[in-house]
Design a protein around this nucleic acid. Structure first.
Lengths: 339, 339
DNA sequence: CTGTTAGCGCATTCAG
DNA sequence: CTGAATGCGCTAACAG
């Protein structure tokens, strides 16, 4: 390994001068800079990040925490996409990204603890937000910089987070259904422990209320990606004598499953039942029919959260922010007009 | 930050003794160990990874390189899944995982260079394998530990890689179609630059040949997830007077798109055309019909590659290995018997 | 079994 | 504008 000393020797200056050249210190003459840079190039010098971190007490690295991978939710294309958004700004700012994929909540917590206690990272991005999350409390207690993608369970105005206005999105997409003449509208969502589900559902409820449509509990289902009980719940919904004519589904991947189940039950989409959902991941374009869905700009969600955490890491007094990424409904073929 | 010195002072021993306790050195008495451990706990001590790395000249970190994210391929659930496989063994062995998601090949290369030159990582896992890859050559030249998930383009017997037997998988799944009475069988795959596509296609060809079925070039299509030209190519295939009755598709996600196109063209699956594909990601269970597909054990692919790279990192003389993860056909509803 | 010393590679005082 | 000295937190000889 070629060190700063080797470069110093080769270019006939002292190590500290080399260090200053690396930092592009203005008090170094252009001549020496050129000379030293040449030596660096010739020797193939690259600064050792660990030595640098050690003295700088900063790592220029961000930890990214995936949700528990116990269920299938991780197969959601949402994740590669947000990783990509984070990656783009991380790369531009010459930061690095530590990824944690724990199976259980305990495993996740232990990884986060290692990351922060061991000075692996300067900040953490949480790719989920759930009720009573130990990781959040841990980070809060230590006052370690972190941001949440989604809405925090508590301390909403103390925790920097980047989110969509899921309430509004849920309201708007439901209103679309209502405008298309639907009155019997169901909601199918993931776990209620996830705030994103709640917000979208509340938006849905608000739209119903504004339209003077009575809330009907048997029209609401929460399921973990159609695992076990979920399937039966949906089948029950379809067996009702007054079935819904429209369905608000909280996630494109769930929609895919619903589409499949409806088809199996001989229900045509959108002729018999209309479906709208959220995320606008790639597969929503290639389902049959293509889904009318809310584009939540996943990449932007990632990019903004990366920007926010880096700001916080560089300046611990950075005020808490709430960053709302705008959404947009993408109209495709899964909704029909009722007359 | 509480350091080893603080612990030493608090427990009345020297820093090196504390260090030895951390390393669980057997030459330290149980008594002092207990004493020191108590002090560590009381003070909330955690070793600083950067300092440790600096002297150990090892980082216990692995870099994971995603393929170029320029196209939609990254939305493939394959990636979260393999990350999860890697994550599980990484976590067990107390390693960490650096993730790189570059947009362009150039960006990826620069990230890898930073990782290895800056001693960010002890080894690298490449989640792709493509022709004329600069990253591979770079790593080769430096003799830096790395493994490829998939089959290397060249130097196959010098580069440790973990792969499925995609040739065999392609052959077997095609044979299944043949056994079910199909003779006109098409192949739809991703980019031929990707080795995985080639292997699966070659297996398909071998099966055809063994069955005495003539290869028909108009039955073969390569498309980047149905982007632009892909759609037309498939439509052309469907417009042939002697359409294929079976389709081997190189990836579940592509299958989803194909399913959709066939449906649009009024072709029923599996009655009119049968489909088989690869990967067995979650969504292949929830398509209509559910896909008969090759389970390639994505998680295991990830886990084994992590194991392999850690071995290599710990022992640079570790011989080059080829690790083949077994596959298994999962029979579902996308194939019909022709009589 | 434990303490002392030295040094990993770098950035940053403080002199000059 | 540049060099010498110091220390970041830790591990690894070398003594004892």
């Amino acid at each position: 390994m070629v060190t700063i000393k080797d470069v110093a020797k080769a270019s006939g200056v002292s190590p500290s001068t080399v260090s200053r050249v690396i930092a592009n210190n203005p008090r170094i003459s252009q001549d020496t800079k050129k000379k030293v840079r040449k030596a660096m190039k010739d020797l193939g010098y690259h600064p050792n990040i660990n030595a640098r971190n050690l003295v700088a007490k900063s790592t220029k690295a961000i930890g990214v925490i995936m949700p528990s991978s116990a269920n299938k939710a991780l197969q959601n294309p949402f994740f590669p996409e947000i990783l990509r958004g984070i990656g783009s700004v991380i790369h531009d700012l010459e930061y690095s990204m530590y990824l944690s994929t724990g199976e259980t909540e305990k495993e996740i917590l232990s990884e986060v603890q290692r990351m922060v206690y061991g000075s692996y990272v300067d900040g953490v991005i949480l790719l989920y937000s759930r009720i009573d999350d130990k990781v959040t409390s841990f980070l809060m207690e230590l006052d370690f910089p972190f941001v949440i993608v989604g809405k925090p369970y508590e301390n909403e105005n103390v925790i920097t987070h980047v989110d969509n206005d899921n309430y509004k999105a849920g309201k708007e997409i439901t209103e679309h259904l209502i405008q298309m003449g639907h009155r019997r509208i169901g909601f199918i969502g993931g776990s209620r422990d996830l705030f994103v589900t709640r917000d979208r559902e509340n938006g849905y409820l608000a739209a119903l209320e504004e339209a003077g449509i009575e809330d009907n509990n048997s029209y609401k289902i929460h399921t973990e990606f159609l695992e076990s009980g979920g399937r039966e719940a949906v089948e029950h919904l379809l067996s009702l004598t007054t079935k819904p004519t429209g369905l608000v589904v909280s996630d494109d991947l769930i929609s895919l499953g619903i589409l499949s189940m409806l088809d199996k039950n001989g229900i045509r989409i959108p002729q018999d039942i209309s479906i709208v959902s959220f995320n606008n991941v790639y597969l929503s374009e290639i389902t049959r029919p293509a889904l009318t869905t809310v584009d939540i700009q996943i990449q932007e969600l990632g990019a903004q959260s990366a920007k926010a955490i880096i700001e916080k890491a560089q300046n611990r007094n950075e005020p808490c922010k709430r960053i709302i990424i705008p959404h947009k409904i993408v109209y495709r073929d899964s909704v029909s007009k009722l007359s």
